[in-house]
Design a protein around this nucleic acid. Sequence first.
RNA 1: GCGGGCGUAGCUCAGUGGUAGAGCAUCAGCUUCCCAAGCUGAGGGCCGCGGGUUCGACCCCCGUCGCCCGCUCCA
Length: 512
Amino acid sequence: MQPAEKPENNTVIEKNMKEIVALCKRRGFIFQASDIYGGINGFWDYGPLGTELKNNLRDMWWKRMVLCPPIGPDGHPVQIVGLDSAIIQNPKVWVASGHVGGFSDPMVDCKETKKRYRADHLFFLREINDLNKIVCFVDGTEEDEQRKKLKKLGWSQDLTVYKKATILDSVIQHDLTTKVVGPDATKPGTLTEPKAFNLLFETKIGAVASDDNIAYLRGETAQGIFVNYKNVMDSSRVKVPFGIAQVGKAFRNEVNPRNFIFRSREFEQMEMEFFCHPSEAKMWFDFWKEERKKFWQDLGLTTGNLLMREHGADELVFYSKGTFDIEYKFPFTDPGFGELEGIAYRTNYDLNQHQEHSGQKLDYIDPERNNERYIPHVIEPAAGLTRGVLALLCEAFTPDPGRPSGVYLNFHPSMAPKKAAILPLTAKDGQPEIAEKLYMELREEFPVDLDIKQNIGKRYARQDEIGTPFCFTIDNQTVADQTVTVRERNTMAQERIHLSQVGDYLRRKIKI
RNA sequence: GCGGGCGUAGCUCAGUGGUAGAGCAUCAGCUUCCCAAGCUGAGGGCCGCGGGUUCGACCCCCGUCGCCCGCUCCA
């Protein structure tokens, strides 16, 4: 029985994701980019409803960060300002950040075993007296394992007769790739030369292309914040501790885009860099961890599908003193989780780097600490906007055989692309006129649909499928006494309220 | 990047080496006082794209692009 379990499970998961993707296309949430040309791997377009959904999530983040930031430990709202930096910056920015160079991982393929290795995760043993004997291991391979492999090859198992090399380049330089036995290979010469995977998109500035005008599309929005730190300080009357927030596109040449919009080459981030005194960094780290978790919960992601996971020491980038991921249980990661947002304590690494590379002083003179000079430390909550959209879609997707549409999207009303639909029960007897009047009133404040055609069941079903939380239906009684029925999406229950209360009703329900 | 699977209407899928099909959706009209109901009709496809074999290709072959699954990868 055991073996049957996994495939069966996979089928169900696959089906779910397929249905979600199909619904997204059918109803205009998300299309494959360049669809009519056969698509392009790793890029997606947002349709009419997807755009509304994405904007809702973005606006809610902006509100919670910049317009109404949370109350800090001192009882007052924390200070955060907004920014919108260019996608293309001076290429030196990406050298300073470590993305150029550090962001490109050379990969080595094994022709025999079809395995792929990161070149910088490999080391080599070369017999000192025999240039033809070179064997390759993955970092961390125990000496016992090394000897086993040497035994299999029929070579000396005395590790002292081998010279250890860590740089594949030296092997390449001496043209020895044909001699190397790969980590899982049985014969030499199956490893390919390292291929550079530059994860940053390159472009050329100016009409004439040449190598000295290379620029990069940003791999994250964060660096735009760091390079504007001084400008914001000098112009905005902010004092440490404070934050700078930015929402925007970022680009990464992912080796293998997968899972709908989860890993794509063009995506959108919502990042905030919070600058503070080093002695308070831990406190702010804990503060933002809680705030950010609460954010996703407030939007309706249920606790069972949300996870706070601390990075292990091996996972941490060298300059981070701690990173937590907020992860979501997507249908394609189930029972595992996938990253939605990372909250990282980045120390003052980035500002230090930019101070060094730009030659500009980026230290802060703190009037509240006896004019102490220091480079602020940074706590970075960095969320994926497009991943957030996917999480909201997956969470909302609710199959329900008991209703005509067979499925509905259970969005929190604040996230729903359409807040309400106005539906005259029939297209006569003065009902369309009342409906249109209500529509014109409501649309000033809410995204709403007016739908007069076809029978009421079809119209309810359509609204269910796009996740509209409320339908206001005009009937004969409306003409007589100015009341409408409100039909609630999840329960399909109806109540009757006065026309004059509709606006208040929506306002109350949408608020988080 | 490797291996496997798939690509026919908006969606879910039939289909045969000889003139492209169904259901649902969409749209129009009628009918309907509350959940894709009923009746009548309409639009919509170079069968992913490009080659090849053939008198003739949606079908067979090759290539390519895209999607899904598994590896690999994800600063």
